[in-house]
Amino acid sequence: MMELYAYRCDACGELHHPRHFVCRKCGNTEFTEEVLNGKVRVLSWTKVYNLPEGYMQPYLCFAIVKFEDSGLIVSVQINDDKPYIGQEADAAVGVVKEAIGKDFYGFIVEPIAV
């Protein structure tokens, strides 16, 4: 299974996602990868109908979510037609963009049934 990472600064412990070249807190440039997964909560969402080239579907839902463990906030695809603010989901990883020979993996969060 594909995994995505957070990048912890070796000097001050600040977590980053995506990777930064220089730690946004202390200026250090060494990081250690940590698997980024677990439960997230939806902070905001949208259902987008005008998708860019390469997406052969009428719409996709996106969300900005916060990881419960680390507090990291990331933008993701969400596998739900009608998300809501505060919704809980699992940070699954899947192909977010298909391209010949180089699929791109990203978070496609799966809502947790309430």
Binding site: S44, T46, V48, Y55, F62, A63, Q77
Partner: peptide, 19 residues
């Protein structure tokens, strides 16, 4: 972290507007 997800400027504006 954004472009490959299919996120566009309207996507961000949509999420911003909702908040």
């Amino acid at each position: 972290a954004e472009y490959p997800y299919g996120l566009t400027l309207p996507s961000f504006a949509g999420m911003f507007t909702r908040l």
